[in-house]
Design a protein around this nucleic acid. Structure first.
Lengths: 224, 224
DNA sequence: TAAAATTGTTATGGTTTTGTTACAAATGAC
DNA sequence: GTCATTTGTAACAAAACCATAACAATTTTA
């Protein structure tokens, strides 16, 4: 679950955006000043929505500060179109920008678009190990070119394990990786999913690799 | 790698656009005056981004000059909406136009959209899979040579899916591809269109392929 | 301009996936 | 080999997700 930082000094706006973001599956934290935004940015943020007009430190400065050591996507929000010249001209490195007034739907569409773009650019999310092929983007997995009909969780589990050959994951670790940080379910849930995943994998031969149980710890993917 | 000509007398803007274009996979050359733009145009350009307000020779003149002997796509950039009347009215032959202020993301989206459109016109986008025939250029589709009376959205959806066999598309992804960058509607809309598309497809037999739902993700086309 | 076609939105009910639990089986320590 | 602990499995319950239909809005056509 991606985490947004929403920085705007208008609490009504941030509240609406926060609610809306949650409905779309984004966690979010809110800052009402520029300095607060910089402070909160340290808490592992996936995308920043940054209002230009803010007390203490304006959006431009915050953006430039963040860009000094991070490429986390930033969407600038401005009250009027005139700021365009500055956003572009100052080369502050925002990824997109939105002019007020906006609809929450528009904001979310842009957030998702930017995240998608970043995601596609950075990782291809494809694994090929022996006869196993996992494509997280297309949500398809196959053994010997025969398609496995995996569910979302199953493919995510398999990807996580296979992408980290021989590394053992605890159940809590997997819950974090696949289910997200703010998921508080039973860790035995992982077992059930592993069973279902194995049942599907074992319909085909794969002598060179397997998903193994690490006793007292969790699970790992292993190439022999 | 398509090559863009970016013509604008504001160097800061052109720099950012150039960077952005590179990230999206476009090479680009920059002109800061109208005459320079005409000069650089000779170097095998795939698309021109043309600011209206430029020294020496304005964007309109440059556009008209280029159109005398070339159909290379041109996107006009204007500072204010009023120019719209002139761009469209004077029939200077631009393919699209963008009003400042714009975000780099928007510009790139339009560039890609125009290139896609041109591409559709020149390379006939035709898919033949088993008994299915989809012609995006002519907006026609048929099964066993029997014409399906698909609407525009339906045929675009079918084409997008069929052109990427087995690749799952999220609803948001499809909204991007088929509806475009600045569409902010509900992603359930996709479902409705898929239902209507399926209803039409299922009037005919097509045992070798189908449009499948990918649970928790979206849709995909699958050849068995 | 009116009618028709297309497109967008929403509510409902049904389906698939996911989460949980209980119990059996396996494992490792002793 | 026995026991305590961990894991596998199956069945069920809950949640998430989707298909469909009906209707509203918009666009196109006549």
């Amino acid at each position: 679950m991606p985490k947004l930082l929403i920085a705007d000094d208008n609490l009504q706006i941030t509240n609406i955006l926060k609610d809306y973001a949650l409905k779309e599956g984004f966690e979010s934290v809110v800052a009402s000043t520029g300095t607060q935004a910089l402070e909160l940015f340290k808490t592992d943020i996936d995308l920043v929505l940054l209002d230009v007009m803010m007390p203490e430190l304006d959006g431009f400065s915050v953006c430039k500060e963040i860009r000094k050591h991070s490429t986390t996507p930033i969407i600038m929000v401005t009250a009027r179109g005139e700021d365009y010249e500055r956003i572009m001209g100052l080369d502050i490195g925002a990824d997109d920008y939105i002019v007020k007034p906006f609809s929450p739907a528009e904001v979310m569409a842009r957030v998702k678009a930017v995240l998608r773009r970043i995601d596609v650019q950075s990782n291809s999310h494809i694994i090929d190990i022996d006869n196993l092929h996992v494509d997280l983007t297309a949500f398809k997995a196959s053994i010997n070119h025969e398609e496995l009909h995996l569910t979302k969780k199953e493919i995510e589990l398999l990807y996580t394990l296979a992408a980290n050959n021989k590394q053992a994951f605890s159940r809590d670790n997997l819950l974090d990786q696949v289910w997200g940080y703010s998921y508080f379910g039973d860790s035995r849930t992982v077992d059930a999913h592993m069973t279902r995943l194995r049942a599907k994998l074992d319909k085909y031969d794969h002598p060179k690799w397997d998903v193994k149980t690490v006793w007292g710890v969790g699970y790992k993917f292993e190439v022999l």
